[in-house]
Every structure is written in structure tokens, then in C-alpha cells.
Design a protein around this nucleic acid. Structure first.
Lengths: 190, 190
DNA sequence: ATTATTATACCGAACGTTCGGTACAGTGAC
DNA sequence: GTCACTGTACCGAACGTTCGGTATAATAAT
């Protein structure tokens, strides 16, 4: 068997960084070729179904990352809820490059990606939401209140990413995350 | 002057709806032609500098709308702050179609639009932020606290739009706005 | 050990299509 | 007739995609 010049994982990681930055329409095969070092025809060897195939691979990769690095730790019930949340925030900050990198969920739900891809994105959101809601319920809260907190947090994540990209003001995301943590665990509504 | 088949304002309004929906790369001249009913040559007659010219016109149109419908009412100091905010929320909900329409600031800051366009977007955000901050200061708050509230609200707007687009769950945006209003005027932090 | 065969990985060149943009001839109100 | 506007035809470039072919590595038979 011939040697791969780049592993599939590293390749998908590269595609991910390009797509999250340029969006669906903004990502051209030529650009992918330039950055990965693989020629266009080679990319089609790895992903026979073309661009949508590449995007799908990226989404599945991100789903796995989300599950492994964010959701699973959120559900470790032997750890205190606050600590689980804190560890998630560390991961999240790194994942979004301190707010300087876009969220694939935002980027791809804007573009004209295929329906099955949008379904995957929706599932990713739902999984994260469910894990946060479960965590909030571990921390005393009722189910309905827990769901509100979970949604509010995810809204804060997406909103802070948009605002920081817009203003190019780096501390926005980190500040917002710190504030969101306080809100998530506060005892009652003010 | 020969008769225009469509007024410039109505034309720009059409372009706006297409661009906010499809993004910069996703918006093609052919699509603009199809939806506006004007042939390409007519579009280029109206906007000699081409696509960027059209996008710029849309951004300037939105800037004017923002200034007139959102920012100016926010600064009417003879009206009570809570009422000003409430009226803004009505306008905002309509502007974003109850959360079903995208924000141009998000859409265009993602795409590879020209720098001067991104500068305009940044100014729009800053103007809205400043007006909200001034409003919050009218309602007792300190300047730093007012700026936090303003940013939190704008983050909520952008985040709720992303999340609702992602989940296709309509009440998300309106619910979030109602919650954001309470947060904006609450007395002290919890 | 040598050979033939198969499978994988990659590339250069070209495909048909669509992109944004242009040139120019009509058309209709003044 | 003039001039603002619109329609048809067209352009080069870039798009996503396909194809023919090469190089290397594993496999099987001799």
C-alpha cells in the first residue's frame, strides 16, 4: 500500500480550519488544495463524492470532538457541577481560539450546505444542550430552569463569537464566558 | 428620466433580503437578477462598480435603518428608559422576522467582503452599542456596568439568531429577547 | 528470489458550468 | 432627438469535477 503524504485525521483537521474560517461557499477546492498540499485530484481520491463529502467529514470530525472533549466530561457525575463546567470552559475557549475562530454550527447553517449536513449540525447542538441541561439539573435546578440556563449559555457562546469577530475586540469572548458561568449557577433569577 | 421599473429603495431592500439570506459568496448576480426582476445589465447600470457596490448600498441602507428605527428612538431622553427599550425590541423583532432572518452583521463579517464594508459593519455595531450604553446610563447604571449590559444584550441578539437558525425553533429569539430585557434593567448582579 | 498482479496515493490536464463583468443595440418618456 | 434605462450577447476567469496516467507498496505465484 502506498504511503499517505498526510494522515486522514490531519487532513480533516486542515479542512475544518479552512471551512470554519471561509464558510461553505467561501471554501474552494483550490483553496483546500493550496493549504493541505494535496492537489485537487488527490482530494477527490480521499473524498470521492467531492466538496460535500469533505464538508461532511469535517462535520463528523467536529461531532466526535464535541462528544469526546465537551459532552462526555460534562456528564461525569462524580465531579462537582461547577468543576465540570469550568473544565468545559477551558476546552471551549481553546476550541474557539479565545473567540477568534468561528463556530462551524454558525458558519455552515448560514451557507447552502446539504440538508443531511444541517441535520448533523442540529444534532450536535441538541447533544450539547442536553448535556448542559443535565448538568444544570445536577446543580439543584428544575428541568425547565435547567433548559433555560443551557440555552442561554449556548446563545452566549454563539453571540460572543459573532460580536468578537465583528468588533475584533479579543477579550469579548473570554469575558462573556466568565459572566455566563456565573449566570449558569446563580441561585435564582434577578 | 425614463421610468424605473423598480425604485432604488425597493431594489436595495430586495438586495438586502437576498444577501442577508445567502451571504456574500452565496449571493450571485444571477440570483439578484432573478429575484429583483432586473437583468444583469440593469443591475450594473444601477451599481456600476458591481457586486461590491450592491453590497455596500445594502450596508448603507441597513445603517440608515438602524440609525433611524433603532438608535434614534433609543436616545429620546424624554421617554422612560424601559419604554425606549421595549419599543426597540418591537422594532428588532420585526427587523429579524421574529428570529427567522439573519443579521447582516453576522453574515457579512463571515464572508470575504471588502475591508471598507467590514468597517461599516463595525461602525454599525459600535453605534448600536453606544446607544444602548447611553440608555443604560440613563437608567441609573454606571458607565462600566452600562457597557456590560449593552454588550450582553447585543451578544444575546446575535446568539439567539444563530441558535434559532440552527434549531429551527421559532420561540427561541423572542424568548431570549424577553429575558434579555429583564437582565438589562435588573438592579444588581446575581 | 523473482515476477506478475493488484491496490493505494497522487498528480497534470482538461472537462462543462457558472462566476462577475462588459459591449452594444434597442426602447420609451421627455 | 435625447437620454435614462433595459435586454441580448458575449467575455475571461474561476468554479467543482473527471480522467488518464505514474509511482509506490502489498500480495500471490513461480
Amino acid at each position: 500500500m502506498a504511503l499517505q503524504t498526510i494522515t486522514q485525521d490531519a487532513l480533516v483537521e486542515s479542512l475544518f480550519e479552512i471551512i470554519r474560517c471561509h464558510g461553505y461557499e467561501g471554501t474552494t477546492i483550490a483553496l483546500l488544495s493550496d493549504i493541505t498540499g494535496l492537489k485537487k485530484s488527490s482530494l477527490y481520491h480521499r473524498f470521492p463524492a467531492g466538496k460535500d463529502d469533505m464538508v461532511k467529514a469535517v462535520v463528523l470530525y467536529v461531532s466526535a470532538q464535541l462528544q469526546q472533549l465537551i459532552i462526555a466530561p460534562l456528564l461525569e457525575r462524580q465531579v462537582a457541577p461547577e468543576e465540570r463546567f469550568s473544565k468545559m470552559l477551558v476546552t471551549v475557549k481553546a476550541f474557539y481560539g479565545g473567540g477568534n475562530k468561528n463556530c462551524l454550527l454558525n458558519v455552515l447553517s448560514l451557507g447552502e450546505a446539504k440538508d443531511d449536513i444541517k441535520t448533523l449540525l442540529k444534532q450536535d447542538y441538541a447533544a450539547w444542550f442536553a448535556a448542559l441541561s443535565a448538568l444544570a439539573q445536577d446543580a439543584v435546578l428544575t428541568q425547565t430552569e435547567a433548559e433555560v440556563r443551557a440555552e442561554q449559555f449556548l446563545i452566549a457562546v454563539q453571540g460572543a463569537l459573532v460580536v468578537q469577530r465583528l468588533t475584533e475586540n479579543p477579550p469579548t469572548f473570554d469575558n462573556c464566558m466568565a459572566y455566563a458561568q456565573k449566570q449558569f449557577f446563580k441561585s435564582s433569577d434577578g
